[in-house]
């Protein structure tokens, strides 16, 4: 008896954009028409049949690099967000349940990490660490985990103070039941929304780092480094740098639209019965 949920236009656009990017990311080697690293045209050559977006600064097919770049960008952003969530939610819940000294130490350290702007922090750390994908993902994850820790802790504190949790404690339930059955299900909606927002942020963040030359290293294609490679063309009127920029925008706008819709949908159900 599940009613067909009418999807508002904005959410439909968001879902569509998300689907396109995800399909590109997953099936890049099969979709991509040319080898993304092969020089097959003139530098910044214009669009022509078979090459709808033209060529990049070295004469590589821009569309192929865009599709392959989706894979790197989405993978790094998603991996960083997932790891950040595992760390942030685990520590946040731990602090909220144990309170006392554990909470104080974790929270003060978190405050300290958050007192330095994310980008600046990343720059400092990356200046000392070897440059590879794993390091990049971990650095992003740790920095992001600070925000998630704060949210997860606050949510768990709020929900933990509600009487049904007290009732479960009075019944004699153990920590696992309290966390898994009473607290987590009631924090899922805001955490899900936060996941979307953090993912969008991480897409922007990895792109920014790559654009600054500190993220993904050549010859691997990702959207941020593609902007960097092609930026000098702008003053000659070559818009190759804008194409990956627009792709980043498409992805983040899509995520934001979907998150917006999810939030409004669950809000209208008054936390009742979206068996999500």
């Amino acid at each position: 008896m599940k009613a067909l949920f009418p999807i508002p236009a904005s959410a439909a656009i968001g879902l569509l954009g998300l689907a396109v990017v995800l399909v590109c990311a997953m099936f890049a080697p099969w979709i991509s028409p040319f080898d993304p690293n092969a020089v097959i045209g003139d530098p910044w050559g214009p669009a022509q049949p078979g090459h709808p977006l033209g060529f990049d600064n070295l004469g590589r097919d821009l569309l192929s690099r865009l599709i392959t770049g989706a894979r790197t960008t989405v993978f790094v952003a998603l991996a960083a967000t997932v790891i950040a969530f595992v760390i942030g939610v685990f520590l946040g819940l731990t602090a909220a349940i144990l309170r006392g000294l554990t909470d104080a130490v974790l929270s003060r350290f978190n405050d300290l990490l958050m007192s330095i702007p994310t980008l600046i922090f990343a720059l400092i750390v990356l200046s000392a660490l070897p440059q590879n994908l794993m390091v990049l993902i971990l650095v992003m994850a740790v920095l992001d985990a600070t925000r998630i820790y704060r949210l997860a802790r606050a949510l768990a504190m709020d929900v933990g103070a509600v009487e049904f949790v007290e009732a479960a404690r009075l019944r004699g339930e153990g920590l696992l039941w309290l966390l898994g059955r009473e607290i987590l299900p009631n924090t899922m909606t805001p955490l899900l929304a936060e996941f979307g927002l953090r993912l969008a942020f991480n897409v922007l963040f990895i792109s920014t780092l790559s654009f600054l030359g500190l993220g993904i290293q050549p010859p691997t294609a990702d959207w941020g480094s593609m902007v960097k490679e092609n930026k000098d063309g702008i003053i000659f009127g070559v818009s190759a740098a804008l194409v990956p920029g627009a792709a980043i925008a498409l992805l983040t706008v899509s995520i934001n639209l979907v998150v917006d819709w999810l939030l409004r949908r669950t809000a209208s159900l008054r936390g009742g019965r979206d068996d999500g």
Partner: peptide, 23 residues
């Protein structure tokens, strides 16, 4: 504003350059 918070800074910057410097 929803669109603007989703755009990377360098995208806005190059768009402005393309329109207000080149074109």
């Amino acid at each position: 504003s929803l669109a603007a918070v989703s755009l990377p800074e360098f995208f806005i910057a190059y768009l402005l350059i393309l329109v207000l410097v080149v074109q």
